[in-house]
């Protein structure tokens, strides 16, 4: 339900962007800030602002989905590692912990659909913890696999940032009442 802000004495004008009723003396729509009294160019600028924000939202969502794929990948790697420990090395404690870690990443991947920020942040902490523990246990691992460590860290940091941006950009677009987004 729109609540219109209108002076009972003055003439009214419906907003082109969100259809809220405004007083004709207003320069901007009081519900979505569309420049109802502005020039053609100002109105075009408002619309292109929405287009830019929508594109930024899409871009952030793409980063988040890349990060989700990374979570699947880490779950898969740990599962394979666990199977290797069990079947090829007869190292059952390592097998169990690797499979538990794989399960943890799978649970986080499932949670990422509902809350990307919380899930990716937790996964990043799990990932760093595993690395720190392994390196303390065997310092020689510090120099091993540096490219993959860098790639994972960059993807995680980008994912956390983008997951937060998705929330903020959605809020911003909802306020501007862009078509197809928000509660209209």
């Amino acid at each position: 339900m729109e609540t219109s802000s209108v002076d009972s004495s003055a003439e009214t004008l419906a907003c082109e962007n969100c259809q809220a009723v405004n007083s004709a003396t207003q320069k901007f729509c009081s519900q979505c800030s569309f420049p109802i009294g502005g020039t053609k160019n100002e109105q075009i600028a408002f619309r292109s602002n929405i287009a830019v924000r929508t594109r930024m939202l899409k871009e952030s969502e793409r980063h988040v989905s890349i990060c989700k794929k990374l979570l699947y990948f880490l779950a898969g790697i740990n599962l394979l590692l666990g199977l290797y420990f069990g079947f090829a090395a007869d190292d059952f404690p390592s097998m169990i912990s690797s499979i538990c870690v794989a399960l943890l990443f799978l649970i986080l991947t499932a949670w990422a659909d509902r809350n990307p920020f919380g899930a990716i942040l937790t996964a990043f902490i799990v990932y760093l913890t595993l690395n720190v523990v392994n390196i303390i246990d065997n310092p020689a691992l510090l120099s091993r696999g540096i490219p993959s460590k860098i790639i994972c860290t960059v993807l995680f940091v980008g994912g956390i940032r983008s997951a937060r941006q998705v929330t903020l950009q959605r809020e911003a677009l909802e306020k501007l009442k862009a078509p197809g987004i928000g509660n209209r």
């Binding site: 609540t3 007083s23 207003q26 009081s30 903020l168 501007l176």
Partner: peptide
């Protein structure tokens, strides 16, 4: 108005959270 999300005169966002 209390219910406004933006100022009708200058387009300034009014809610506590600025997009």
């Amino acid at each position: 108005q209390e219910t406004d999300a933006f100022c009708g005169h200058c387009g300034n966002p009014l809610a506590a959270t600025d997009p």
